[in-house]
Amino acid sequence: MDSATSDRAALQATADNGLKIVVVGGFGVGKTTMVRSVSEIRPLNTEETMTRAGEAVDHLDGVQSKTSTTVAFDFGRISLDERSVLYLFGAPGQERFWFLWDRLFSGTLGAVVLVDTRRLADSWYAIDRLEHHGTPFIVACNDFGGPLHTEQQIREALDLSDDVPLVECDARDRSSSKYVLITLVEHLHALSQGNASATSAARPEITPEKTPEPTS
């Protein structure tokens, strides 16, 4: 019973700030693989139970009579420094789960939408929802050896605006997954600098890879 706790690497006693990034994507697209390849602990699995009166639960097939529903998700962890710990959550992107994420992932820094180019339509809903919520995200195409697409083809298929970074990755590879996360955080940083440019001084040591176009 204690096996889960005994091989668990403890955080430093000074850790006091938990941060969140979500990896979202269709079934079998590599979410758990990506979490595992960068996490300092073996990915753990847990579940959240949600109670919601009315419409959201009614959409769930065959659970009309229940007042609650349960969704499983996995997560990993990266200790960033003596105080900050980044948690990565792998979350299914299917439509019927999204009302759960609204609560589960509030306060998330941003999201990685993991995409299999053979099944681009699987990620439409997740992208839609993130845009709707104003959660910043990037898109990472996981290489499953599918037919080659140009960046432009993928952007068109996903109806993705030019200011959302699009990268290729191999979720099994640690440095590739790390690069995906860095791309996301650089994107967030560029966005926050844009928003806060009136109040905060520029930080020359951080060079965002992509600067978003000003929206016209």
Binding site: L19, I78, S79, L80, D81, S84, L86, L109, G110, H133, G134, P136, K178, L181, I182, V185, E186, L188, H189, L191, S192, Q193, N195, A196, S200, R203, I206
Partner: peptide
Amino acid sequence: ADRLPDPDILEQVLVGLR
């Protein structure tokens, strides 16, 4: 809602990830 994370925090995250 509609507020981005603090740039200072993001810079710390970048340092940690790199």
